[in-house]
Design a protein around this nucleic acid. Structure first.
Lengths: 333, 333
DNA sequence: GTGAAAGCGCTAACAA
DNA sequence: TTGTTAGCGCTTTCAC
């Protein structure tokens, strides 16, 4: 900055102004300054700006497991929107590890980021031990969490569960299995509740021995499929709480000689990119992940910039994608 | 800091030292200071530290498309290793957009990050227009790129291609198709070169009308499959440059009534989590993505901290995972 | 319209 | 062992 000022024959204050408030500087002066900046390739030091102004134009995004391919589109939605408002994003993976969470929170209180977009599943342990750890920075949740009071942009998982149930009931299924994630996660609990309550409308319920719960993933799907294949009175349909799990189910069911959807129908959740390329292609509840990320990001930036946020909770509706893995049960054909 | 100093009855310098160089402070003083910090919940402002010391203990990771699920494990490898050395990572998606790249480079010259881990595919356009844009910060590439001179940690894609060819040749295939990504990408060019050169050893080559190139993805796989299915003299095996593309191929081949691997064998690349859950499960070239990320991250931190980096190029070997989608051609059975 | 100077919160050289 | 102080690079009053 000093060098630029010297070369342009002005003070550093003028250079600074030429950059941040161009109209407060006479045109000729401004042009001269910008000329020098062009020549020297000067770039302002963001850290100094940040220290001085207390603003970083960056957002922290925290997820519990970056390994989950599910987040890819979600990040993209955030990234694109953030960029359009002049922010960049910092993605962090807490691995649900308290010390890791603490590290990221420290960055926030250091004002390295202006706000936090938190896709929290389980209530983080930091909150249990020390309520002070949640920094007084703008925060938007991407999942409902009754332990934390903050604006939220979330998927309507209750609706998602109901869509799946409605579809299966509509096809004529009455004996149905469900493969759930950790019920302590709000998003999972709602899928579960939506699915079972919609079934209940038709007098159906999922028996305990057809309810499988665990960490969602291929392995859980495989395990559930094994038990279903061995079951004396097997279900005619299964609802899996995400597509990866559904893939595991599908693979093992086919291996065990069951035909999908002839013997058993399968409904997934998420609509991952590979869902339409399974054989049979997977009926699933589509989550508009990119839109979800963008909406959450918009709300966070609005909070940061104290714009009119309007509603404090946005609920995004999923959508059923009917494909080849679901059909009426054999008894109906 | 001032407040803590006042409460503890010492100077701010002592507080600073108690935190960063505990042994230069008398134990009693230190304890008193730490006590106060504990009570007040003081957290040091990283931005100020950064401005003063010129170090941020954070690393920038740049990829061209975060939407690619392939990166998930790669990020995790980086994250875990970075954390073990006390660094945090900032993930950015350039979308191969020059202005976006420029924004991220600015962060680097601002010293918001101590170094850059760059998984560059195509040579970025910033380099073409302005050679000054590449900041003088520590840089490690995660893909070879002859336009940029920097330490590199990369996958041995030549070997990957050769493993696929060797496998197919070994099974007895002689008429083989290949579905490639953009040949301008170094990683793709090497897969291609490795595959074709290994085939050449057995006097085989991939005819032009069985070579399909484009943006890797389900659609490319589908298109290739259509053409293969219609081909008057179809191949007995296909090598796809990644698993997503292989999934698209598999789906359409099966839809067109071809049996895999009975009529046609299929080999993918990457070993994505869903590869073993396809039907048939996918033979593929496994890339140890987590190890790759960790190795790259280690090299970058070593460069930053001026440790002995040793070699300046690390090449990570992929590994063939033989599964159900490949078998000898019908003529050999 | 422009310049001088204070200061964001911290670290490190130097002094005591 | 501890305190004083300069200054990292910038923005922003307040004078001129």
């Amino acid at each position: 900055l000093h060098d630029v000022a010297r070369s342009a024959g002005v003070s550093i204050a003028t250079v600074s102004r030429a950059l941040s408030q161009p109209d407060t500087v006479r045109k000729e002066t401004r042009d001269r300054v910008l000329q020098v900046i062009q020549e020297t390739g000067y770039r302002t030091n963001q850290v100094a700006v940040q220290l001085r102004t207390g603003t970083s134009r960056s957002l922290m995004v925290l997820v519990s497991d970056i390994t989950n391919a599910f987040y890819a589109e979600f990040f993209k939605g955030i990234e694109d929107y953030a960029r359009s408002r002049g922010y960049i994003i910092l993605i962090g993976d807490t691995s649900e590890d308290p010390s890791s969470e603490q590290d990221y929170f420290d960055l926030l209180s250091s004002k390295k980021a202006d706000g936090l977009l938190w896709n929290v599943d389980a209530t983080p342990q930091v909150l249990a031990t020390d309520s002070r750890t949640l920094p007084g920075t703008p925060l938007v949740l991407c999942n409902a969490n009754d332990r934390i009071d903050a604006p939220t942009v979330r998927i309507d998982n209750d609706l998602g569960g109901r869509l799946a149930a409605e579809h299966l009931i509509g096809l004529g299924h009455r004996r149905v299995a469900q493969v759930c994630g950790p019920i302590a996660h709000d998003s999972i609990a709602r899928r579960y509740a939506g699915f079972t309550s919609e079934l209940a409308k038709s007098g159906c319920s999922v028996p305990d021995d057809l309810t499988f719960a665990g960490k969602l993933g291929i392995e859980l799907g495989r395990d559930a499929a094994e038990q279903i294949a061995r079951h004396p009175d097997p279900p005619t349909a299964v609802f899996a709480h995400n597509d990866v799990t559904a893939i595991g189910l599908l693979h093992t069911l086919l291996n065990r000689g069951l035909r999908v959807p002839d013997d058993i129908s399968l409904v997934g959740y998420d609509d991952m990119p590979y869902a339409p390329a399974m054989t049979p292609d997977l009926t699933t509840v589509r989550l508009p992940r990119r839109r979800w990320g963008a909406a959450a990001c918009k709300m966070l930036i609005d909070v940061i910039e104290r714009n009119d946020v309007g509603q404090t909770e946005i609920i995004i509706a999923p959508e059923l994608k009917v494909r080849g893995s679901s059909a009426p049960p054999r008894s109906m054909r």
